[in-house]
């Protein structure tokens, strides 16, 4: 299991989702990726995308105006 960070600051929907999707393609099941974004829409969109692709959102928090969504990569690739 490895931990990764993805900087999606200043990107507007759906770019944070696209970046998350592309990042996860290169990761293995069980890996963790922390996505940092500034578009609040991403807090809906990234979890929605994760639900449909079998990845788990294990945390969402707001830190000084930034949203941090932590995703655990699931078994299903892509």
């Amino acid at each position: 299991m490895t931990r990764h960070t993805l900087d999606a600051r200043r990107l507007l929907c759906p770019m944070p989702v696209i970046r998350t999707q592309n990042k996860i393609k290169s990761l293995a099941p069980g890996d963790i990726v922390e996505v940092v974004c500034t578009d609040p829409g991403a807090t809906n969109d990234i979890p929605a995308w994760c639900r449909m692709h079998g990845h788990a959102v294990i945390g969402t928090e707001t830190r000084s105006g930034e949203f941090i969504i932590t995703v655990e990569v699931g078994k299903i690739a892509g």
Binding site: M15, V17, Q21, D45
Partner: peptide, 25 residues
């Protein structure tokens, strides 16, 4: 408008349909 964040329409539609969605840049 930030108080009610917007959702991505395509993602939302796919979720209603129960299908996966691939978003391509």
């Amino acid at each position: 408008d930030r108080a009610r964040p917007k959702r991505n329409n395509a993602l939302w539609a796919a979720e209603q349909l129960g299908i996966r969605l691939h978003i391509i840049d």
